[in-house]
Design a protein around this nucleic acid. Structure first.
Length: 937
RNA sequence: GCAGGAGUGGCGGAGCGGUCAAACGCGGCAGACUCAAGAUCUGCUCCCCUAGAGGGUUCGUCGGUUCGAAUCCGGCCUCCUGCACCA
């Protein structure tokens, strides 16, 4: 990507500039060397990066840097996404002089004099792209920038790559043309997605059965929309809005229908031929009779102000017995028109719950529903009856040949029968009222000749499942979510009529839609640097050539050397070893990513691992501009610096819970990092101490191993707990204990600088330089695993820590001043007794006691031994771990006399409990292995 | 509504069948250092008993399995994510 030049942006730390200048993160094919290829979902370039981007990105950058320390050849590229409507929309709104859009840009940090330029979508793309690149560089992103690009025709070679992708998918039969219902705005002439809606988010197209009730005499059809065709056997009357507008129309050149006014256009948009014959006065229909097609019964048309003429056909069939709305409405109507009293509910479904009752009447009685005004209750009652009847209901004999069938099984069959008998038709309607942002009520349109990705294809799905089974997920708990998404995924429209992007190569009126051109661009990264280096021309990137590069196609005759290099590069870098994103992309982008990879690349190219993270909350709340807790990454970097931002983000969550980022944490972490760095610059040297030195080395070894384990699974919080908090705490303890081996401590810092460099690379480099190391911490090798020189080293140190803590507790509890402390280490027979109890774990107390008494030294202790055994048996926790033996314990404590004295500020004497020189309170008797007795005097 | 995930201290969160009052971090309290503040260091920090190292109660909620449950199973409540032509 060419430099975008002079757009003022984010301050780049000198260290980051140096890494870039030295090309530390440029990765090229190194045959034989293990590689690691990871990708971040390229951001959509229409606004600043925020903490959410920062979190997902940092987790990946940490992984990149960790794998680099592991000696792998790591490729971490970064691209930009511009496909779709929003960018074009910003430019268009600005051109139209929309003041809101202008304000949004100003709020986003755009200078007033720059606004004019935002009328050009290309400028918008370049503007944000430059800021993104600088932000990513400033946060310490270890990116190979040579491979950057932006989607859409702005990068003609990328567009060519997308053309190849779709040509290939089509050849493979995965792109098909279809006809599909969508929620649609006739005013905007486009599908209305959730985000384009004023009301009706979540609503989707739903197919109604239109039952054709014929007017007596004239013979026009009053089609009634219903989702419960089975209840037609119990229809009692029709409802029509006597105040509404209705039309007489001819449908498909045949029947004449009377429908609500909007129905005409709906049907037209659902591939029906509609001829409007003129208006109809609904009042004229009131009281007339219609014939129920399913059973020939006559029933009246009644007036109903609650009927929405714009919903379905605008004419509604009433089922007194099973629809609470209809039941209550009729009760109301009867008050005004007693003649209708002869209308009786007809029960046609039997359930255990409503046996022997008229269900609608029954539920209204139970719920105390008295009028149509009780809308909330009616809604609940309706869905309750529906569920009960659908799941447990059977049709009664009145339904003729369907008698006895469960509702859940016969519903679809019955609808199909009605349609084929000519009794019914179908119409699509939104599952709830949808109003477009342009304030127009949406309808369902059946789009013809739309291009789809055939995600419903079972054979394709089976291979994606195979791919998932072979993949690693971090954390693994998201795996079921992928499996599930594969199961329900249906065909996906992959092209739109407007916006930025790449036209479908065979049907240029369509542009490949934004989620559909961002699924295999990882493969493009493997060749992007060759394209820009050699200035490869679009016309040379033919389908044949790309087949050769990516799909083992034969080498085209005229292929140049760069083509071979591309192929080698692709084969070397693929598959993607790790892709990470927020959890919202699991059910769409990440799953599509798997489908496309499975379709286009051989098994060796299938993704290896995915990591998913939660949403960043700020100060305990979801980040939002209106709450005032929206934090841009740039602002955070300027306030706290890259290391503190990275550390605080990455330390806020391990798995895919939503991390909570707080400024106070960032501040406190910043202080800790500074203190850590300054510790490395002033290392005292006081010589060796064999015990303490080997304890410190062993502790470090443990932290290194824990950190490696955590890093490799992207458990960044745990990694920091080991590599930072744990390690720093141990060093502090070492120094407090009197350890001061300068050489060892330097080595300690050097190791920490290395293992912390994935998260705090800037501090790591600073320490690296401070210690006089050559090169970069970012290029160091992960430390060798070490194991402790002897197994009791940790228990021994824990003994000291515990003894100190106990002594302090006791001294606090005594409540009176003391001048000397005596520490009595447990006698040998108690250690022996402990091991006897341990060896006999699980046996009855009598047996354990008997076993202990067979040991002479224990028997000699007599009366003291038995209560002790009972106590140990009661609290099995105490007998689990193995510690130092009696002699070691005494030695360890004795050697810590000086330390304990310093800490307590009083003279401390360590003695053997079985031979105390001074024990007026007989405290030595309570000494236990691992828990010496303490006496303060 | 459907699918998946989650509910542990003042807070963020470890733990995922027995050393759990619960790692680590934040916040709070006390002490050291400082003229002071900040930073740093050292303790304490669920509740109830007991106060010389102790005991008990708790892990959304109600049940169940088990010698033993925060951990496994079922019901309920609450929250998060997605549900498609939209990035």
């Amino acid at each position: 990507m060419e430099d975008t030049g002079s757009i003022p942006t984010v301050r780049i730390p000198a260290q980051a500039a140096e890494w870039e200048k030295k090309g530390l993160f440029r990765a090229d094919v190194l045959p034989g060397r293990r590689k690691f290829f990871l990708t971040f979902p390229f951001p959509y370039v229409n606004g600043a990066m925020h903490m959410g981007h920062g979190f997902t990105f940092t987790r990946l950058d940490v992984a990149a840097r960790y794998h680099r320390l592991r000696g792998e050849n790591v490729l971490f590229p970064f691209g930009f996404h511009a496909t779709g409507e929003p960018i074009a929309g910003v430019a268009a709104r600005l051109k139209a002089g929309d003041p809101k859009q202008r304000q949004i840009l100003l709020d986003g940090g755009v200078l007033a004099e720059e606004i004019e330029s935002f009328k050009d979508p290309v400028f918008i793309v370049n503007y944000w792209r430059a800021i993104f690149k600088d932000t990513v560089t400033a946060i310490g992103g270890s990116i190979d920038w040579r491979r950057s690009f932006v989607t859409t025709t702005l990068t003609p070679t990328f567009s060519r790559f997308i053309e190849w992708q779709y040509n290939t998918l089509r050849k493979l039969g995965y792109v098909v043309q279809g006809t599909h219902p969508v929620v649609y705005c006739l005013n905007d002439q486009s599908p209305t997605g959730d985000h384009d809606r004023l009301y009706g988010e979540g609503a989707s197209p739903e197919e109604y059965v239109l039952v054709k009730f014929r007017l007596e005499g004239a013979g026009e059809v009053l089609p009634c929309g219903t989702l419960r065709p089975e209840t037609m056997f119990g229809a009692t009357n029709l409802w029509i809005n006597n105040e509404g507008k209705y039309l007489r129309i001819r449908v498909d050149g045949k029947e004449e229908w009377i429908v609500g006014e909007p129905t005409a256009r709906k049907l037209e948009n659902q591939l029906r031929k509609v001829e409007v014959l003129g208006p109809v006065d609904p009042k004229a229909l009131i009281g007339k009779n219609v014939t129920n097609p399913v059973n020939g019964r006559a029933m009246p048309v009644l007036p109903a102000p609650f009927v929405d003429p714009a919903h379905a056909s605008g004419v509604v069939v009433s089922v007194q017995a099973h629809a609470p709305y209809d039941y209550i409405a009729l009760q109301d109507y009867l008050k005004a028109a007693p003649f209708a009293g002869k209308i009786k509910p007809i029960v046609l479904i039997e359930t255990a719950e409503f046996k022997g009752t008229v269900p609608a009447e029954e539920i209204c009685r139970r719920e105390g529903i008295a009028s149509q005004a009780d809308e909330a209750k009616l809604e609940k009652a309706t869905s309750s009856i529906y569920k009960t009847e659908f799941h447990t209901g059977r049709l009664l004999p009145i339904t003729g040949k369907y008698a006895g069938m469960p509702v859940s099984e016969c519903k679809d069959r019955l609808a199909a029968d009605f349609v084929s008998a000519g009794w019914a038709d179908r119409i699509w309607e939104c599952s709830e009222k949808v109003v477009c942002r342009c304030n127009n009520r949406c309808i369902v349109k059946i789009l013809e000749n739309q291009w789809f990705l055939k995600f419903s294809d079972e054979e394709w799905k089976a291979r994606v499942r195979e791919c998932v089974a072979g993949m690693a997920f971090y954390p693994d708990t998201i795996r079921p979510q992928f499996e599930n998404t594969i199961n329900w995924l249906k065909d996906k429209a992959c092209a739109r009529r407007s916006g930025l992007g790449t036209p479908l190569p065979w049907d240029k009126g369509w542009i490949v839609e934004t989620l559909s051109d961002s699924v295999i661009y990882m493969a493009y990264y493997t060749i992007a640097h060759i394209i820009s280096r050699d200035g490869v021309r679009v016309e040379d990137m033919t389908d044949d050539l790309l087949d050769y590069v990516f799909r083992d196609g034969g080498r085209p005759p005229g292929a140049k050397g760069w083509a071979d290099e591309m192929r080698e590069s692709f084969l070397y870098w693929y598959p993607v070893d790790l892709r990470g994103s927020g959890k919202d992309l699991v059910q769409n982008h990440l799953t599509y990513y798997l489908f496309h990879h499975v379709a286009l690349f051989g098994k060796k190219g299938w993704p290896a691992a995915i990591t998913v993270n939660g949403y960043v909350n700020v100060e305990g709340e979801k980040m939002s501009k209106s709450k005032g807790n929206f934090v841009t990454l740039r602002e955070a970097l300027e306030t706290y610096g890259a290391d503190a931002v990275r550390f605080s983000l990455v330390h806020a969550s391990d798995g895919f819970e939503d991390p909570d980022w707080r400024r106070s944490d960032a501040e406190s972490i910043l202080a800790k990092i500074r203190s850590f760095v300054s510790g490395a610059s002033q290392i005292p040297d006081g010589g060796q101490d064999p015990h303490l030195d080997s304890w410190l080395s062993a502790s470090l070894g443990r932290h290194v191993a824990d950190a490696a384990e955590a890093y490799s699974q992207i458990r960044t919080r745990s990694a920091m707990q080991a590599a930072f908090f744990g390690a720093v705490e141990d060093l502090r303890w070492y120094q407090r204990r009197g350890g001061s081996n300068g050489e060892l401590v330097r080595e300690y810092y050097r190791t920490l600088a290395t293992i912390l460099s994935p998260v705090i690379p800037f501090a790591a480099e600073e320490i690296w330089k401070e210690l006089g190391e050559k090169g970069f911490a970012s290029q160091a090798a992960w430390p060798e695993a070490t194991s402790p020189s002897n197994s009791s080293i940790f228990p021994a140190e824990e003994l000291i820590e515990r003894t100190l803590s106990d002594a302090k507790t006791v001294s606090g509890l005594v409540g009176k001043p003391f001048s000397r402390a005596y520490v009595y280490s447990a006698p040998e027979w108690k250690h022996t007794l402990l091991s006897v109890v341990r060896d006999n774990a699980g046996k009855p107390a009598q047996e354990v006691i008997a076993a202990a008494m067979r040991v002479p030294r224990i028997k000699a202790a007599g009366g003291e031994a038995v209560p002790l055994i009972q106590k140990l048996l009661k609290n099995p926790a105490g007998i689990r771990s193995e510690g130092p033996n009696a002699e070691e314990e005494y030695r360890v404590l004795k050697s810590a006399e000086g330390f304990l004295s310093r800490e307590l500020g009083k003279e401390v004497a360590v003695e053997r409990a079985d031979a105390p020189s001074h024990d007026p309170a007989k405290k030595s008797r309570v000494a236990l292995p691992g828990k010496p007795a303490i006496f303060l005097e």
